[in-house]
């Protein structure tokens, strides 16, 4: 994969992200912000590789913190988003907080 392919991906991802989120009802703004915060937790994967390839004790320490923080972002992000969306029932009687 050379540089231009990455550029294409970046651009298409930007457009995709915009389009997917563009016309969202106000009631979903907060859960969606929480949901996209959750997805951002995928940085956990980069952290795992960084820790996995760490050789010196310093790198291992920083890598350990990276994985810990990334896992916290992913796990916490998921559970709060799920709780927010848990208030959405089929009968549509929700308040958005």
């Amino acid at each position: 994969m050379e540089g231009f392919a990455a550029l294409y991906i970046f651009m298409l991802a930007a457009f995709t992200g915009y389009e997917v989120i563009a016309r969202v009802p106000v009631i979903l703004h907060t859960p969606l912000m929480s949901g996209s915060n959750f997805v951002h937790g995928v940085v956990l994967v980069g952290a795992m590789v960084a820790l996995g390839e760490a050789r010196t004790p310093l790198e291992q320490a920083i890598g350990f913190i990276a994985v810990l923080l990334g896992a916290a972002n992913a796990a916490g992000g998921y559970i709060v988003t799920e709780r927010m969306l848990g208030m959405f029932r089929k009968d549509n009687k929700q308040n958005s907080k």
Binding site: L44, M48, L51, G52, Q60, G63, F64, I65, V67, L68, L69, G70, A71, A72, N73, A74, A75, G76, G77, Y78, I79, V80, R83
Partner: peptide, 17 residues
């Protein structure tokens, strides 16, 4: 280290959430 970090970070965070 990886598994411990995942468990501690994920576990604490899940519990707090």
């Amino acid at each position: 280290l990886m598994v411990i970090a995942l468990a501690v970070g994920g576990g604490l965070s899940w519990w707090s959430g």
